[in-house]
Design a binder for these strands. Structure first.
Lengths: 206, 206, 206, 206
DNA sequence: CATGAATGAGCATTCATTCAT
DNA sequence: CATGAATGAATGCTCATTCAT
């Protein structure tokens, strides 16, 4: 209403900074509206730049998505629940606890990241590049789970009859399923995880 | 399903038959290409009718999707693994076995239905109508699981320390996670289900 | 200024008529501004239709150009100087006179058609489809010239030492060169043609 | 020409040298893809400079084209078939032979230059500046032809009944038409020129 | 019930050009 | 002299939807 005519002051950023900024906006847009809702124009507008400028940094929409994919991978690599990283070096039990707290951390504090992740998983069947990314992420995660379960079996912190490979699949599926189905606030998340943990441990009593 | 491609031009069908045909085609299109790949023109063409005719039966695209949703619900209600229906009336153990075989049945014989289901779940966060449908389906499924687990606890076929509500959530999450992540042929499905089943049972020995 | 709000009355035409109308407009646009100046939006606007309607009849710009090409071919096939058609059956001299009057006819009365022709010839090196069209047109024209020259040599109406194939090439090149170079009004066209004709005839006297 | 592709980045060249280099690249680009295919960015890239640097030397695209036009004119002024220049001073017959060998020279050895020339002629109807250039080139050429034909008439090396002005037009048109229509290798060029020459000479015998 | 013509709003992408550095 | 970031104005094309027949 006030300053209509004033054209925005052509802010000049380094390519790296601009890319990062645009990717963050795109990340947000995807989190909110999914891939279907991703319009280069919208991203540009929300990033405060002309859509041609966006295409200057990301020649095609696919390039932009690739940038978001890289960011997603980066976030999963660097963002962890406090202390979960160090726990891995200690006992299997501690490592498993770390896994649980990471899950809680993402579901409670990194819902936007999970939303984007969900979109990528949903798109994977129709986009080989994304399929590869998703496969990588899952393979990495599954690997650590298998290691943890194997160690836990050995040191007695987990039930002796564990099929550690299948167990990793169940764990991963259950967590992913919870993420994919969770729409509102994950009220009973901890209860579910507690149950899962209980099943993994040696049966008390008897 | 039925014969989608080779319908003679200008065939005059009853509204109901036409609707059913169109929905089947749309079901197929969504299974293949997701919601993103859903074009009313494509559906019309594959149904052997003009796109205007499609809009005659389904005024908006959303109406068509609602039709597909109804069809999805119908299929889940009527299609079950052979024998799984009757098993529910018998013991809790039998009912649980029925659940397992239903999962196997869908993952092996109804992949198209699951693909559409996956699409609906993915869209739920952004479409209240779909969110409701999905919530309904899950609530129904969760209900039977809770019942089964409660009964199993009582009759000793399942572990005594089961939190039957949380267990239902874990089960449902794990199955859904497996469905959502499964891209290629689910080779190790049975191994995963066996592990899950093992965890649910009272620990043998000791 | 007067009736602003009145949306244009969605005139409904048969596909054939609409196509014809659009092609005529495109013909005109190309004649004026060349291929470089051809914008589907402009053609649509000048044809009084929405640009989406244009794409309904011509899915791609290339399809539109193909339509113009067909029209060009059609015009060359059907439009001739009065009497030139019949002259071909008579003597070689009459046929040659017919060729001359056709050239005059097009240069004086069908400048628009020639302008489009010029564009197609100019584009031929970079468009195989157009190259083929142009080659066809030239081959047909050259064929009649060769026939005429051969007959003229035989009946003595043309010089005896004529290399009729080379002569056809010279004639065609000269006419085309004149067309391609002519920008303003072709004032001295007749004088040039007279000279060419003189060269073809047996030298008088001496 | 020179080394277009492999110029080291950030080389600081004198304005004149840079201009020359850029023009040569543009010349090449136009020869290959016509005016339609001329992109300032492409030219800049192939010249090993930033597109902004190109605009530093040629403020607008039109300026660049003007540079190419000047280069074209320069080439036509300086490049001739060996010996053709000196022949002009001798007899009319020798001068005409020089014209013929120039035509052969350009069609066989300077096809790139002709390609650009063709583009300029094609653009002339829509660009007054280019129209002027083309008119100049043609006027100069036509002038020498008229002079030659007049002299040839006088000294008996050409037919006595020649209309030397019209003859110049026919010659120029024929050559230009051949250039404009030639797509592949001009195999029968010499045969065509021989025929043209024959027509110009006094008829032998009788 | 069925259709083909018609459309508005939109979409990714292109390109000559500008400008601060 | 040189550059990379930035932009406005297109441009061909898509798609759900409308409407007269």
């Amino acid at each position: 209403m006030t300053d209509l005519q004033t054209s925005p002051p052509r802010t000049r950023l380094s390519a790296e900074l601009r890319r990062k900024l645009v990717i963050d906006v795109a990340f947000d847009v995807i989190a909110r509206g999914g891939f279907e809702g991703l319009r280069t124009r919208d991203v540009a507008a929300q990033a405060g730049i002309n859509s041609a400028t966006l295409h200057h940094h990301f020649p095609t929409k696919e390039d932009l998505i690739a940038g978001v994919a890289a960011e997603l991978q980066h976030r999963f690599k660097t963002e962890r629940a406090p202390g979960s990283e160090e726990a891995r070096a200690a006992s299997a039990a501690a490592a498993l606890a770390g896994e649980f707290s990471d899950v809680i951390f993402y579901l409670e504090e990194r819902q936007q990241t999970l939303a984007v992740y969900r979109e990528f998983v949903g798109r994977a069947p129709r986009d080989p590049a994304i399929a590869k990314l998703v496969a990588n992420l899952h393979a990495g995660w599954r690997g650590s789970l298998v290691t943890i379960f194997a160690a836990g079996k050995k040191d007695g912190s987990l039930r002796a009859d564990l099929d550690h490979e299948a167990a990793a699949d169940v764990f991963l599926s259950a967590v992913w399923g919870f993420i994919a189905l969770a729409d509102g606030p994950p009220t009973d998340l901890r209860r579910v995880l507690a149950e899962l943990q209980k099943w993994l441990q040696p049966q008390s009593g008897r």
